[in-house]
Every structure is written in structure tokens, then in C-alpha cells.
């Protein structure tokens, strides 16, 4: 594992390079402008990262400490993805990366070079709702709305996981057809907390979408 010093180039070098029209390479480039590594005086380590968000290519220069969640919310101003705990405990920050749902608070932006990220904004728009979004409205699968984008991103990914035959803790028959039963849905959705307690309605919304697919 390379230490920071092995990656080091100066911020000035980076700026000069960029000013000269250099194109940033696909791998993250790091800049350390501080004279000392003592934490008290250490300047932020910056890196550029490129990924696709909701089908659009984005390139950012970020403080390497920036989570994917904060990159989305603060830098790209895609605030549909929520910060509930910042510790991977609540699921409000769930997004879909390369087809899999993840907690965007538990991963750094710079780890996603080349990733394809789908957020709640990419699933649908108010006048053009994704079927899962429409089902949440119809079944009142939310109240305050804060966990909702994470619930919906998770819900979409959960039905894909079941369709792909990926078993869960409650799967009884590992070699049979996997069905989107209420038990499977509840088990797989349990990483997404809803303190308003809309669970019963969320399961109804997901069952409707699963049924429509089947």
C-alpha cells in the first residue's frame, strides 16, 4: 500500500499543469501542499475523480476525505441523497453504484473513479416518476420524507437482487425460484431505517412494483 508521500505532487504543480491545458488522467491525482505532515498544519489533500452520475459524466477535484455522499450533496448539489447518521447505520444515503446499492457515507468519492452512480434524482422526476417512486406516493410509503430517497434506491436494488436470485438470511430454498415475498422484502430493507414508521406501507409499495414486474 502506497503511503501519501509516494503519491505526492504539489498543488502548485497540479495548478500549473491544469493551466497549461493538461488533461487529468483517469487515476486520482493527489496534491499535498503542506510543508509538514503534522495534522495541525496539514493542508487538505486534493484529488481529481471522474464518475458518471445519473448518466452524466462529472469530474471533481475533492478533498480526499470527502465521502461520496458529501461529493453528491455539497459539490454536485444533488441533495436528494440524505445524511442521517454519516456512519452507515441508517441507510438514508443509499445510492446505486455500478448496479449495487451502497451507503454513500461509507465510501470516499475518490474510490469511485469510473463508477456509474444513480441517485434518487436519476430514478425519476416529479412529473416523470419511476414506478417505485409512484408506488411510494400511492401507498404513502413515507411521512417526513427524509429516509425516503434511500428507501427507494434500496427498494429498486432489492427487487433486482431478488430477481437475480441472490439469497438472503430468510431465504428458505436456495435452489428454488426466489420470490419477492414480504419476508424477503423486510429482511433486505432492514438497513434502511424509517423512524416515522412507514414500513408496512413501503412493503405494500414494493409488493405492487414486484407484482407488476412478474
Amino acid at each position: 500500500m502506497a503511503g501519501p508521500r509516494d503519491w505526492e505532487i504539489s498543488r502548485r504543480d497540479l495548478m500549473v499543469g491544469a493551466g497549461a491545458g493538461a488533461v487529468l488522467a483517469a487515476t486520482p491525482k493527489l496534491a499535498e501542499a503542506g510543508a509538514s505532515l503534522a495534522s495541525e498544519t496539514r493542508m487538505p489533500t486534493l484529488a481529481s475523480v471522474s464518475f458518471t452520475v445519473n448518466g452524466e459524466g462529472r469530474r471533481l477535484e475533492v478533498d480526499t476525505r470527502t465521502t461520496l455522499l458529501d461529493a453528491l450533496r455539497e459539490r454536485l448539489q444533488l441533495t436528494g441523497t440524505k445524511k442521517g447518521c454519516d456512519h452507515g447505520q441508517c441507510g438514508a444515503c443509499t445510492v446505486i453504484v455500478d448496479g449495487h446499492r451502497i451507503n454513500s457515507c461509507l465510501t470516499l468519492a475518490v474510490m469511485h473513479e469510473g463508477s456509474e452512480v444513480t441517485t434518487i434524482e436519476g430514478l425519476g422526476q416529479p412529473e416523470n416518476l419511476h414506478p417505485m417512486q409512484a408506488a411510494f406516493v400511492k401507498h404513502d410509503g413515507f411521512q417526513c420524507g427524509y429516509c425516503t430517497p434511500g428507501q427507494i434506491c434500496s427498494a429498486v436494488a432489492v427487487l433486482d437482487e431478488i430477481k437475480a436470485g441472490i439469497p438472503s438470511h430468510v431465504t428458505v430454498e436456495l435452489d428454488g425460484e426466489l420470490l419477492p415475498t414480504s419476508d424477503e422484502i423486510r429482511e433486505r430493507m432492514s438497513g434502511n431505517i424509517c423512524r416515522c414508521g412507514a414500513y408496512s406501507n413501503i412493503v405494500d409499495a414494493m409488493a405492487e412494483v414486484a407484482g407488476r414486474r412478474a
Binding site: 441533495t79 441517485t119 434518487i120 416518476l129 413515507f142
Partner: peptide, 21 residues
């Protein structure tokens, strides 16, 4: 009736306090 602000909430367009860009 469905919630009138529902489409904003389920698409992430309802802005909460920390998000007022």
C-alpha cells in the same frame, strides 16, 4: 388523497434545512 408534496419527496426535490443551495 395522496400527499400533495409527495412527488417532491420521492424524487429528492424537497429541500431540508442543510440543503438550501
Amino acid at each position: 388523497f395522496d400527499r400533495i408534496e409527495g412527488p417532491l419527496k420521492v424524487t429528492g426535490r424537497a429541500p431540508y434545512a442543510y440543503e438550501r443551495h
